[in-house]
């Protein structure tokens, strides 16, 4: 019995010690850096952000506005903001991330244009051949208005002349009609030998 007491105590102490050791080992293991899965990275070639980093509502609005100016590459004439496609969604996320990092609209548009070409702009840049897109509609509308104006004026002028000489022209038309009838009767009379009244 005398030997049993110290033996039980030492077993308990050993168990406690082992438990503590196990706990500390677990704590140390948790503190060790666990090799994280490789973070995928892509070089965008954008350089340093030239604007202020956006957040909250301001970020939401700026993301929508910029997404609305860019064309969804897999859609028919839809903006990145309007399209529900996964490609547009990825582009919206990219725009949001870049705006949150402080990149300006111009930097972001230049990045997308560098990858997709000018096609990605929903509104083409007003330069070179693109100027036709801006000029032709203006010329077409101006020409149409001018044509309508000229036609209206011409119509008004001829109506005015018609009012003044209405009687004369009516008489002239009657005379011409009568002359045609007389001529016809004369022709028939000559052919048939009948006398002319």
């Amino acid at each position: 019995m005398e030997h049993e007491q110290p033996s039980a105590r030492s077993t308990l102490s050993t168990a406690l010690l082992l438990g503590l050791l196990g706990l500390s080992a677990a704590v140390v293991a948790a503190a060790q850096p666990v090799p994280a899965p490789a973070e995928p990275t892509v070089e965008r070639g954008l350089g340093e952000p030239e604007g202020a980093a956006l957040s909250g509502e301001e970020l939401d609005e700026a993301t929508y506005e910029l997404s609305d100016r860019l064309r969804c590459p897999v859609c028919q004439g839809l903006s990145v903001a309007a399209s529900p496609s996964p490609s547009a969604l990825a582009m919206r996320e990219e725009i949001r991330e870049l705006l949150a990092a402080g990149y300006t609209d111009d930097q972001i548009v230049a990045y997308f244009e560098g990858a997709y070409g000018e096609f990605v702009r929903l509104v083409p840049k007003p330069e070179g051949f693109n100027l036709l897109v801006w000029i032709v509609p203006v010329i077409a509308v101006a020409s149409g208005l001018l044509w309508v104006l000229l036609q209206t004026r011409r119509g008004r002028r001829s109506r005015g002349r018609g009012d003044e000489s209405g009687e004369d022209s009516h008489q002239a038309a009657e005379d011409a009609e009568l002359a045609r009838y007389r001529e016809e009767i004369r022709r028939r009379a000559t052919r048939g030998g009948a006398g002319v009244p």
């Binding site: 995928p40 892509v42 070089e43 965008r44 590459p73 897999v74 996964p86 490609s87 990825a90 582009m91 996320e93 990219e94 997308f112 560098g114 990858a115 997709y116 070409g117």
Partner: peptide
């Protein structure tokens, strides 16, 4: 290669 978020596809201007 896995391209989470399609960022590589965007950087390469992939249409589809």
């Amino acid at each position: 290669l896995l391209d989470p978020g399609g960022k590589t596809a965007i950087a390469y201007g992939v249409y589809g």
